[in-house]
């Protein structure tokens, strides 16, 4: 059991006054069996009205608007969350039973359909198919994760938020988001329902209690073979004590932390900072 405090500050700076802006923020961790969310607080500057709802993928979403001229928009999400970590059970379904169940579930069907971002590279698909011939869906998924981890190099600044799986794979360089998209593409190509998970990861393997560190948004995957199973291909680790989940969907575009529109025509510039403290 671990307790974290996360302070996520993000927003936009504009080159001149913007008369109005409307945004959606997805910065609040989900509440489920694994995560207990004690408190959440959202501060928006300048202040405007806001409405919270759960979107189609059950992500807590905050829609808010600013209807006065502003040059900067800042939103700060402060969360206290406790993680309980029952060792995940290994999904055991075989290929035919898995396929049969996908047909009559929209949730699983969404998870096998490729998106523009996850559309997988051909050589990785060949690899996944070869493994799938002699292994169970779960074993195949683990092998794909290992392959992505070993072939890819984690590096910032090469791919942007709009990058797609094939580009990152061809360069063999990317960030967590690329690792996740590549993995999803390969899993879906062999028929394993898999979804994109957005959240936070404490950067230290042995977090010190009470120490505030600079973190960042993180992404990993979950696949389904009878039950959902989470795995982090960027670090080739199980999702246990350090991963805080915001939401799960088809790919990044379904749950960017902040997305909106503002009255143009000026340029906007994004800023982000994440502070994580292990509190217990």
């Amino acid at each position: 059991m671990s307790r974290y405090k996360i302070v996520h500050t993000t927003g936009f700076k504009y080159e001149a006054d913007v008369a109005a802006s409307y945004n959606e923020a997805r910065l609040l961790p989900v509440r489920d069996d694994r995560q207990i969310v004690f408190s959440t607080k959202l501060d928006i500057e300048p202040h405007g009205s806001s409405h919270e709802y759960f979107d189609y993928f059950k992500t807590r979403t905050l829609m808010f608007e600013v209807l006065e001229p502003h040059r900067e928009l800042t939103i700060t999400a402060t969360t206290n969350v406790e993680l309980r970590n029952p060792m995940p059970e290994t999904p055991t379904l075989d290929w035919p039973s898995m396929a049969a169940l996908v047909v009559s579930s929209l949730e699983l069907t969404d998870a096998v359909a490729q998106t523009k971002r996850t559309s997988p590279p051909a050589d990785l698909v060949r690899f996944a198919k070869r493994i799938a011939k002699t292994n169970s869906p779960h074993e195949t998924a683990l092998a794909v994760c290992a392959k992505v981890f070993s072939d890819m190099t984690y590096r910032h600044g090469v791919t942007g938020v709009h990058s797609i799986a094939t580009e990152a794979w061809n360069n063999k360089i990317g960030v967590c988001q690329d690792f996740a998209h590549i993995t999803l593409g390969a899993l879906r190509a062999v028929g394993i329902p898999a979804r994109y998970v957005s959240g936070y990861l404490h950067p230290s393997k042995q977090p010190q209690i009470g120490e505030t560190v600079t973190g960042e948004s993180h992404a990993w995957v979950e696949w389904w073979a009878g039950k959902w199973f989470a795995y982090d291909p960027t670090n080739d680790v199980h999702v246990l004590e350090r991963h805080v989940v915001i939401g799960r969907a088809r790919d990044y575009d379904d749950l960017p932390p902040l997305r909106g529109v503002y009255a143009g025509p000026h340029q906007s510039e994004l800023f982000v900072s994440v502070q994580i403290t292990k509190e217990g």
Binding site: V161, L258, V261, A263, G264, L270
Partner: peptide
Amino acid sequence: MPTWVGEVS
């Protein structure tokens, strides 16, 4: 007519 500009993080 406002021209809306999309922004995404």
